[in-house]
Design a binder for these strands. Structure first.
Lengths: 139, 139
DNA sequence: TATTGACTTGGAGTTAACTCTAAGGTATAT
DNA sequence: ATATACCTTAGAGTTAACTCCAAGTCAATA
């Protein structure tokens, strides 16, 4: 598979894929005799994992570390496992923050929608909000 | 409330708070006669919202836009509502990616843990994984 | 065979979001 | 009154993760 095909499959740029390979986010990709990248099944799976983990905010350092450990062989499995577990904890913590933000947003949207409907802004008594305290806008 | 207290309340640096104010992520903060920031209830709520939305990955531009609209008055409520709804969609999409990554991670961790236990690596038939195809490591 | 378009590398440039520095002002304890 | 710790601003510097560029190579087409 050419770099272009992999790019459109995972929606990343060729520069990004070459960068990932250069810094070690994915192992070296197979080449044609002419030196052009020809992604194997395995190469593609590495790209899939890398882009998936990246889009969940896993930093590049960790991915590089993971690939490094993988290349050292099966004796690094416990370390890899630990690395993944720590990454999982971080992502779970992140997701919690997302949920908090979503809750805040939902509340504001609900109040705003009602305001658009009824013409007046009404915040909950003990949940009034920085953007507009108790139906009275600042200034 | 002093900048320091606000910082420890929301776990951000003074530089960050001053930066937020400077670029308009939060409105101008009240000052003492000496020119030192003295955060009001409302100021603190803005900080809370800003840090909450930021930690869910909402970009600074949007927060600035939101504050700008807020300061223009109640007639911008429909626009603010639209802005928040779009932000919500983006965060929901992000969260979905998090969940995909978590699923991938959980699978790998499960296989690795079993490998540590039993001494051999076994990936699912049609779910084998770039890091180790079918219990055979590359290289 | 010549052109065209995509590929290669190494290295420089960009962007968002801070983070730090310098030079000085404020406030409280001795 | 002076030392100490914290505050102020304007502006420069940093970091992660790309993204772009120049100069050249490869591959398919006219």
């Amino acid at each position: 598979m050419t770099i272009k095909e992999v790019c459109s499959k995972f929606n990343v740029s060729p520069d990004t894929l070459r960068y990932y390979e250069r810094v070690g986010v994915i192992p070296e990709v197979r080449r044609t005799s002419g030196g052009i990248r020809d992604y194997s099944e395995d190469d593609i799976k590495w790209v899939e994992t890398a882009t998936c983990f990246r889009s969940a905010g896993m930093p590049i350092d960790l991915l590089i570390e993971y690939v490094k450990l993988f290349r050292e062989g099966d004796h690094t499995i416990p370390v890899r496992c630990k690395l993944l577990k720590e990454a999982r904890e971080r992502i779970l913590a992140e997701r919690k923050k997302f949920d908090e933000a979503l809750e805040k947003m939902n509340y504001k949207i609900r109040v705003y929608e009602k305001a658009v409907e009824t013409g007046k802004l009404e915040w909950d008594e003990n949940n009034n909000c920085c953007c507009c305290n108790k139906s009275k806008t600042k200034e």
